[in-house]
């Protein structure tokens, strides 16, 4: 393929887009809108996933020690706790401090608290978990440590979060998959319509001696151009909206953590470009293949 032919393909694609400007714009906008929806969902997915992880990471577990435990006993428990895998830190709460905190908490009900003369609370350790995934195994391990009498954690919350994370991950992947498929089908259909509108043109091209490969190349290049501009619009839109949302969220809702602010937007933009080009080229090549087949079959 020489330079003149390549130049010809590029010229032909541009002429074709210009002549079918409305259909080409519809194709470009379909690519853009589909990619924007895909990007928006991906960012939403990242945010929800981040929130879930944050909740999981802040989960704590409290172990209560024997009421009559000695200082040596507490040190022994602490030593053993340090050997437990999956802990992100621990805080010791002496029973005296716990009693003070309780009284402070119920200072307006001092008459009720005053009925209790002796401190009923035991010493305790608050353990920060690295992950909620092995919490059951950890609880079993902690139960074996001498001096620990009780372990408290949101068992129900843990299992619910774990289940939700699982469903969200699989469901999210499935939704992204379906969105990709829908994007692909919509774009193929739009490009198909654009190419079918040129049936007469393709027939004339064949009559004057253009080979199938020749016709395919010029249409695939057209698909490439549609995919390229479609993804560029989507990239500009997603990046601009993302910037505006991130800035406004930080200004007006600083208490809401945005996890997607750490997303590599360059990687996301590149991905959108690759998807746009891929479906543009594939969509046009499938459509022109079908059209040529129908012309040959007649």
């Amino acid at each position: 393929m020489n330079f003149r032919i390549i130049k010809f393909f590029i010229e032909e694609s541009i002429i074709s887009i210009k002549q079918n400007l409305l259909m080409s714009l519809v194709s470009i906008m379909t690519v853009s809108v589909s990619l924007i929806v895909l990007a928006a969902f991906t960012l939403l997915f990242i945010n929800i996933n981040g929130t879930i992880k944050n909740v999981s990471n802040n989960l704590t577990l409290t172990v209560y020690l024997d009421k009559n435990i000695t200082t040596t006993g507490i040190s022994k428990v602490q030593d053993q706790l340090m050997l437990v895998k999956g802990l992100n830190g621990m805080t010791f709460m002496p029973k005296e401090e716990a009693w003070r905190n309780l009284k402070e908490k119920f200072k307006y009900q001092s008459d009720v608290v005053g009925l209790i003369t002796n401190n009923p609370l035991p010493d305790s350790f608050t353990l920060k978990l690295a992950s909620i995934s092995d919490v059951d195994k950890m609880v079993k391990e902690l139960n074996l440590i001498e001096g620990i009498t009780d372990i408290r954690y949101g068992k129900g919350v843990v299992s619910r979060i774990r289940r939700f994370v699982q469903i969200f991950n699989y469901g999210g992947l499935a939704i992204v998959g379906f969105l990709l498929l829908a994007t692909f089908l919509i774009i193929i259909n739009t490009i198909n319509l654009t190419i079918l509108a040129k049936r007469k043109e393709v027939e004339i091209m064949k009559l004057v001696g253009a080979t199938n490969n020749y016709i395919k190349w010029s249409f695939m290049l057209e698909g490439f151009i549609i995919g390229f501009f479609g993804s560029i619009i989507a990239i500009i839109f997603v990046n601009s909206v993302f910037k505006i949302v991130t800035i406004n969220m930080q200004t007006y809702f600083p208490f809401i953590g945005l996890y997607s602010k750490n997303v590599n937007m360059l990687a996301l933009s590149s991905l959108l470009l690759v998807i746009g080009l891929f479906i543009g080229i594939l969509g046009s090549s499938i459509s022109i293949h079908v059209l040529l087949k129908s012309i040959i079959k007649k």
Binding site: N2, R4, I5, F8, E11, I15, V208, G209, A210, Y214
Partner: peptide, 13 residues
């Protein structure tokens, strides 16, 4: 352009 098209397909100068 109609006349040039046929020639361009053949890579004419």
């Amino acid at each position: 352009e109609n006349l040039a098209f046929v020639q361009k397909i053949q890579g004419e100068k």
